[in-house]
Simulated assay, not measured.
Amino acid sequence: MVPVCVQCGTRSNPCRCKVVGPTLGFIAFAAAAAVEWPVGAVVYLFRNMKGRRIMAHPATVVYPSVTNAIPI
């Protein structure tokens, strides 16, 4: 089962709805989070701010960049 994400109200295409970009963004987010969250948790034990940045990376960088790269 593949999750389907819909984002309406955007101005990036004539339909004003995006399906492919948010869905691929979610899949990329989940893949990055599966790797970066455990690493961030270990780093957090020694360097708190660095660990927080690692754990926040999928939500602040990966998901928005993939979602905005695909206008459909």
Rank of each mutant, 00 (worst) to 15 (best):
C5W: 12
V42R: 08
Y44K: 03
A56Q: 10
L24Q: 06
G25M: 01
F46A: 11
R52F: 15
T23N: 06
F29N: 02
F29M: 07
F46S: 03
S65F: 02
F46D: 10
V66L: 10
N13G: 05
T67G: 00
V6M: 10
N48V: 13
I72T: 11
F29Q: 03
S12C: 02
C17Q: 06
G40Q: 03
R52K: 13
L24T: 02
V2D: 15
L45W: 01
C15T: 02
F26A: 06
M55L: 04
Y63G: 01
V2M: 11
R52G: 01
I54E: 03
K18S: 05
P71M: 14
A32N: 11
V43Y: 02
L24D: 00
I54A: 00
P58Y: 09
N48R: 12
K18P: 00
A34Y: 04
N13R: 09
P64M: 11
V62T: 13
V35Y: 12
P22N: 03
T67Y: 00
V39A: 15
A34C: 04
G51C: 09
V19E: 06
V66R: 03
A41W: 12
R53Q: 11
V2K: 03
V43Q: 00
C17P: 06
V2P: 12
I27V: 15
K18G: 05
L24W: 00
A31Y: 04
H57E: 07
R52N: 07
G9D: 06
A34D: 08
N13H: 08
P71F: 09
E36K: 10
P71N: 10
A41G: 08
V2A: 15
V4P: 00
V2E: 12
V19H: 02
V2Q: 09
V39T: 12
M1K: 05
A28E: 05
M1D: 13
V43A: 08
A31E: 07
F29V: 01
A31H: 02
A59V: 00
P71S: 14
I27Q: 07
P38N: 01
P58A: 02
R11L: 13
R11E: 09
G25S: 14
E36F: 05
V66H: 03
P38K: 05
V39L: 13
